[in-house]
């Protein structure tokens, strides 16, 4: 039962990964790519982590730490990259 649940998590996570990464190829703007990357890439990674957690419950502190750092740092990184890439024109 748990095995099936973890495999479902893996499949969903991988689908999210591909969904987030495919817009990277193409001539869209940086902000559009950043949006798809930060939303579905982070979400996919988190779902994958949940799947790994179900697979190996005794490593839970590590995976929880990874989950938290992923949620916080990737959000902050999205903001920083957007700020740095769009602030080129202004002079401060």
């Amino acid at each position: 039962m748990i095995n099936i649940a973890s495999h479902v998590c893996f499949t969903v996570g991988i689908i999210f990964w591909f969904w987030g990464t495919f817009p990277l190829v193409g001539n869209r703007s940086v902000l559009f790519k950043l949006h798809s990357l930060s939303v579905s890439d982070t979400l996919g990674s988190m779902v994958l982590l949940v799947g790994l957690w179900l697979k190996l419950p005794q490593e839970w502190p590590l995976l929880l730490l990874a989950l938290i750092s992923l949620a916080i740092w990737n959000t902050v990184l999205g903001y920083v990259l957007a700020y740095c890439s769009s602030g080129e024109g202004q002079h401060d």
């Binding site: 940086v30 890439d41 994958l48 790994l52 590590l62 995976l63 990874a66 990259l81 890439s85």
Partner: peptide, 21 residues
Amino acid sequence: IWQTMLAFASIATKTAMMILA
């Protein structure tokens, strides 16, 4: 350069996830 940085960000997260897997 910013598109390359985005690719780098994506790769950094993905490799870390692979190490965890």
